[in-house]
Design a protein around this nucleic acid. Sequence first.
RNA 1: AGAGGGAUGGCGGAGUGGUCGAUCGCGGCAGUCUUGAAAACUGUUGACUGUAACAGGUCCGGGGGUUCGAAUCCCUCUCCCUCUGCCA
Length: 423
Amino acid sequence: MLQIPFIRDNRDATLAGLQKKRFANAETAVDQVLALDQQRRDTQKELDDVLARSNAMAREIGALMKAGQKAEAETAKAETAQLKTRSKDLEETLKTVEQQLQAVLVTLPNLPHSSVPEGRSAEDNEVVLQNGAVPTLAEGALPHWELIKKYDIIDFDLGNKITGAGFPVYKGKGARIQRAMINFFLDQALQAGYLEIQPPIVINEDSGFGTGQLPDKEGQMYYITEEKLYLIPTAEVPITNLYRDVILADDQLPVKNAGYTPCFRREAGSWGAHVRGLNRLHQFDKVEIVQIRKPEESYEALEEMSRYVQSLLQKLELPYRVLRLCGGDMGFTSALTYDMEVFSAAQQRWLEVSSVSNFESYQANRLKLRYRVEGKTQLLHTLNGSALALPRILAAILENNQTPEGIRIPEVLVPYCGFDRIS
RNA sequence: AGAGGGAUGGCGGAGUGGUCGAUCGCGGCAGUCUUGAAAACUGUUGACUGUAACAGGUCCGGGGGUUCGAAUCCCUCUCCCUCUGCCA
């Protein structure tokens, strides 16, 4: 959530930022926020004055009662009646205004960092760098959805039978390589100084609000009606929410957490041509890294996280590129996002396997996540990134490493897998 | 799931209608003493909002109510503990 004092002092910058994010009707929304904020503060002031007088009266009545001046006390009591009516009215107004203000405010996305390129869609994203040779496959190379059948390592039909589309069943070496990747990614994160967290994979409404999934994006999450809980779309949600309503001490910073969880996404309306096989699933596995930093360090941390994710891709011997997302393609809550894409040779496509973002104070403001500077509390910055999401990594490994003798397992994974080839 | 008990400041723990934002202890911070440290002593120590700064307002698990006035009484929800039941 954007901070109202910031909007108040930087109306033009806010508008420019929202426009870069391709937010429609920015001016209307911002002016609405400012008007409601003014109304809120006026109402609050008046209410405070009325309450101050009520409090004074109550104390007076108390003193009169003690002194035994009953008649005077009764007179004073009668006077408080209208104060009370007035304060009730004002409270109601305040509540309404606050709700209206909140309703508009939560629709405003985070403002983009100055380095974010202008643009409308994925086509306008900026390629920051590309690394690794794109492999040339032999004649008759297969896409991963054929390979998984050929080697019988992932079964979509079985998943269909017991659950539904987008819930694959991993078998044999398919299951083992999943387990291997999870362990590899967690071990790497540990070495990079992250604390391993194993969070719940269902979250409540407050947590959904804290990281920006709610309101509005509930359609993307699976919902358990009986308990009013959501299945997590990413470990970002439970891990970042560990720090909801927290004031961190200096010696607790920076926070670096990593966690493996399954992730659940309804992906309503996004099924189409390019979602075959492992490209898009309702349930998938991911190791997520989360950092909480002081504002002045957060962009340095973002670069560090980007380099870390790249180091994983290098170790996996996958050709990749890094994109700086344009304003129109960025996430709602992000100020700057790097997407890491690996090249999947048989599909001849770049697949997004990680998204590393700095949310600045946008989530922290919702979470009330702060630290102290010279006695005053101040919002921290939150960042996160996938490190990494499994299915598309697996797709790329299968396609890029296929040989007549089978699938070659990247060297770093061999000790984790216990085999060096799928054949 | 049934019966009972509970939820107060970083922690422990008072407070059961009137200067209570809350006694006290521990912890933290600052100081005195000390070559230094410890001990002892003194002071200080919640958050949000608001103001140029004061003032003012809100917060004693969440929400609602009674009252001139509530941490204190009532209703409700959530969570925790004990006993009984059930079960990985």
